[in-house]
Design a protein around this nucleic acid. Sequence first.
DNA 1: GAAGTGACAAGGT
DNA 2: CACCTTGCCACTT
Length: 104
Amino acid sequence: MAKTAFHSIHQIVKRIPAGRVATYGQISRMLDGALSAQFVGWALHNAPEDVPWHRVINSKGGVSTRAVLGYAPDLQRQLLEAEGVVFDDDARCDLDVYLWDGSP
DNA sequence: GAAGTGACAAGGT
DNA sequence: CACCTTGCCACTT
């Protein structure tokens, strides 16, 4: 019953289980490419607290909050590590292990 | 009412 | 391998 793709993004992000992560491009494909990855980032910035936006990362497997001065750049990494996601020295996580495949 | 802005990705050169 | 261009929707001024 999502009137807008904006709302659909929140629905998908909420479906991401703890300990898993999803990429902007993947979410874009989940919506059948009905939207652009750029909009996903913007939607997360406007996402309510019910949306675990910290589970959404860029295609490199790293956090993307670098452009958000309102939050700590390491905040997203800290939240993911609290859920069991391990980051490498390059600030990247193993997408082969933590990438959400769309299943719980 | 219209234009600009914004947590990006992917392909091409 | 690295850098540059295009595409997208909703919200703000």
